Simulated scan of single mutants.
Amino acid sequence: MSFTHINANGEANMVDVSNKPVTTREARAEAFVYMQPETLEKILSGNHHKGDVFSVARIAGIQAAKTTSQLIPLCHPLMLSKVSVEFEPIPAENKIRIEALCRLSGQTGVEMEALTAASVAALTLFDMCKAVDKTMSIEAIRVLEKVGGQSGHFQYQTTQEQKHD
């Protein structure tokens, strides 16, 4: 297997997808933000001094997915047909799970857009809460599933060696 973003001379290049068929492609990615119980309680109760943290982080994640090609140099600009960012508070573990979904009909995958959406949503949660909790951490950013394209269907399988959270 070779890297697709390296040409025969070993130079970085954007992959030519012009001969690939247009197919429906979808990717899901996740990230976790760990925090103190008090911080999570402020978010969930709506008592955070910066307001609705989830709404701001959701918009940031969606906007990030739409601008991925401006952040990652060799990514193609894509016409996304769907971006969603969802939050799952897990109080027993003092964390919030973020899941991003990106979909389009196109010639290249949307894994980077889903990863970018989950990452920026996590960064936004961190930014909005850093004044009250300096111990937060962002962990386990990964692609959960990818559907469509030549490489077919991929689904993340957690094994003991891979388990991060």
Rank of each mutant, 00 (worst) to 15 (best):
I90T: 02
S81N: 12
T24W: 05
E88G: 01
A65I: 06
P73W: 03
Q160K: 10
G46R: 09
N7W: 00
A92K: 12
A12I: 11
L101Y: 01
I141A: 00
G46E: 09
V33A: 09
V33S: 09
A131Y: 09
V22T: 14
P89A: 06
E30S: 15
G152C: 08
S137E: 13
D127L: 02
R28P: 04
L44S: 04
I62K: 06
L40R: 08
V22S: 12
A100F: 00
T108E: 10
C102P: 11
A122L: 03
T4W: 00
T4S: 15
A121Y: 02
S55I: 06
G106N: 12
P21M: 10
H5M: 07
G10R: 10
A118P: 10
A118N: 03
I43K: 01
V85T: 13
C129E: 08
Q63H: 11
F126K: 01
V33C: 08
K130R: 15
E41Q: 15
S84I: 07
M136D: 05
F3M: 12
E145G: 05
F126D: 00
C75E: 06
L144Q: 01
M112I: 14
T159W: 11
E86F: 01
M1G: 10
N19Q: 15
N47A: 04
R103A: 12
